[in-house]
Simulated scan of single mutants.
Amino acid sequence: MLHYNKLGVPLCWLMAIGTPAVSAHPHSFIAMQTTLVHQEGQLSGLKMRWVMDEITSADLLYDAGKAQPDSVVWKKLAAEVMANVLVQHYFTEFWHQKQPVKFDKMPKQYGLSRQGNRAVLEFILPLAHPQPLKGQRYTFSTFDPTYFVDMTYDSEKDLTLPPELASQCRLQLQTPQPGASLKAYALALDKNDAPTDEMELGRQFAQQVTLVCR
């Protein structure tokens, strides 16, 4: 039995991907990489690359079969996965001066590909309105609120500034250190359990990226 969000979307990603029974949260793992996208001195979006674990990838790659990367098959799969990401507001929150920054409803660019036994989703998360960079500070986090999917950066090396911004801006990665009781609670959840909405379990394990520009 899969977990579903309130909109009826499977939280194991995304489209009808089945996940074998496991005994603890999280059940799926996404390794992330992000690069800033800018235009005329303003931040216009985030270029994201999400590498899914082999189990999560299995059905996607099975459906893709031996299709060529630019085939209709891959484009259809990419559209299905992206549609579910959009339902979840890109699984991302972006903040400036304690106020949320809105995103465009549709990415201008996205694609799905194969990396060995892993599926890779790449897309540009567009901001609804370009944001100034000079003298500004932003924070953003990408996470599944239920912590069904663990979405993490391995290190700050997975966060990239374009060369044009390297002398002006810096990115910092903060990884939370949840207490022993919270970790034990997450480990105790099996595949049929879901944490309460009020608990916001995923947020408590979510990494935070800070962008600071001079």
Rank of each mutant, 00 (worst) to 15 (best):
P107W: 14
G18L: 12
G202L: 09
A194H: 15
M52I: 05
G41S: 03
R214Q: 05
Y90N: 04
D144F: 05
A31N: 03
H3W: 06
M52Q: 04
D53T: 11
K6M: 12
Q109L: 07
P20T: 03
M82A: 08
A64N: 06
Y153V: 11
P163V: 06
S71M: 14
V212Q: 10
Y62L: 08
H129T: 15
A67M: 11
V22I: 13
E40D: 06
V85G: 00
A78G: 12
K47A: 15
T210F: 02
Q174F: 13
D190G: 10
V37P: 00
V37M: 06
T19P: 00
L77F: 06
G179T: 10
G41A: 04
S44K: 04
Y4M: 08
D190P: 00
E122D: 04
V51A: 02
L112K: 03
W95T: 14
A24N: 10
E40I: 00
Q42H: 05
I124P: 01
F29L: 01
L121Y: 00
Y90M: 02
K75T: 10
L187T: 13
S141I: 10
R214F: 00
G65T: 05
Q33F: 07
L36I: 07
V73E: 02
H96V: 04
P10N: 08
W13D: 01
V81C: 02
L11M: 14
F205K: 14
L60W: 03
